[in-house]
């Protein structure tokens, strides 16, 4: 890092931004259908990462399948056990419940596997750099970009071209009216949790491959930034969440590359300063959801 080769910066920006975009989308899916800011999303990421760690001796395909499975099953379990009984409760109650679920799983992890970071390197083959137009770019970053594009494409297809996607978008706009035309509440909510679990696992895999460590607060780190991205993008708007993720990733990378060396440790402070400025001028985010705007 630190050199100003534009290709290098572009690749860094898109690979970091893509991870935040997928995180923000995972959060945004749940928020849009349930109006739940799901803090426990962090633990979906963390547990998916630990699944990779637990299977580090196995073929990488096994680890990937296990981590995706872990995050999806955990997402469904939290919905069934924690959020479904509270579905008719107000948003604050659900928010607090998601904190409780998040803390519970995090402490359970610390209790069972310890709080110390553990090294894991699921995809060593991707560590080697390749040269593109004079810049040294790691295969891992390119793979991250490809994975993000694939996920965004698949999610867009699902939401725009399938009937469950149509039902989810209808429910996101007006849940009651969606039920009145016959959309089943459980179907759209379960679909949202399955998808958010899948996205959490993808984020976990890519993040673990980039950092080489797992620890119980890994998910929280990413998901906090993911929340910032959804708020900047516009809560409840999925394109907004994705764009907000890329924007936050781009800002973080650019600050890292452009700030003088002595200010770099304070990168996050500058990042959040920009976030505050955005929200001062656009309190609903940059690309607010139409349904939410009407209620203001």
């Amino acid at each position: 890092m630190g050199n100003l080769n534009p290709i290098q910066i572009l690749v860094d920006t898109v690979s970091v931004g893509g991870l935040y975009a997928l995180t923000a989308l995972g959060l945004g899916l749940i928020f849009s259908v349930m109006r739940l800011a799901n803090f426990a999303h962090a633990e979906l990421v963390t547990c998916a990462a630990y699944a990779v760690f637990a299977l580090s001796g196995q073929p990488v395909a096994v680890a990937i399948v296990a981590s995706v499975g872990t995050a999806m099953v955990l997402a469904l379990a939290t919905e069934r056990l924690a959020f479904r009984p509270l579905r008719s409760a107000d948003q604050t109650t659900m928010l607090i419940a998601s904190f409780a679920v998040s803390m519970f799983i995090q402490k359970l992890l610390i209790f069972t596997v310890g709080s110390r970071p553990k090294p894991v390197d699921p995809l060593p083959i991707l560590a080697q750099p390749i040269a593109i137009a004079g810049a040294q770019v790691s295969l891992l970053k390119l793979a991250t970009i490809l994975a993000c594009i694939a996920c965004l494409g698949a999610l867009t297809y699902l939401l725009r071209r399938t009937s469950i996607g149509l039902h989810m978008r209808a429910a996101a706009e007006d849940f009651t009216m969606a039920q009145l035309v016959g959309v089943r509440a459980n179907s759209v909510i379960l679909a949202a949790f399955v998808l958010s679990g899948f996205l959490a696992a993808v984020v976990a895999l890519l993040f673990v491959a980039q950092t080489g460590f797992v620890h119980p607060r890994l998910g929280v780190q990413i998901v906090l930034v993911g929340f910032v991205a959804t708020v900047i993008g516009g809560l409840g708007s999925l394109p907004g969440a994705a764009a907000g993720g890329f924007l936050v990733g781009a800002l973080a990378t650019l600050l890292q590359a452009l700030l003088p060396a002595e200010l770099r440790p304070f990168r996050e402070a500058f990042l959040f300063l920009i976030v505050i400025l955005v929200l001062l001028f656009r309190p609903n985010g940059l690309w607010p959801a139409p349904g939410l705007k009407e209620r203001v």
Binding site: L166, H167, R169, A170, E173, M177, V183, G291
Partner: peptide, 19 residues
């Protein structure tokens, strides 16, 4: 008039045939 304002006219009609 609870249309799904952000969905297209066609999508609104398709939702009518959900069942």
């Amino acid at each position: 008039r609870h249309v799904f304002a952000g969905l297209t006219v066609l999508e609104n009609l398709e939702l009518g045939a959900t069942v």
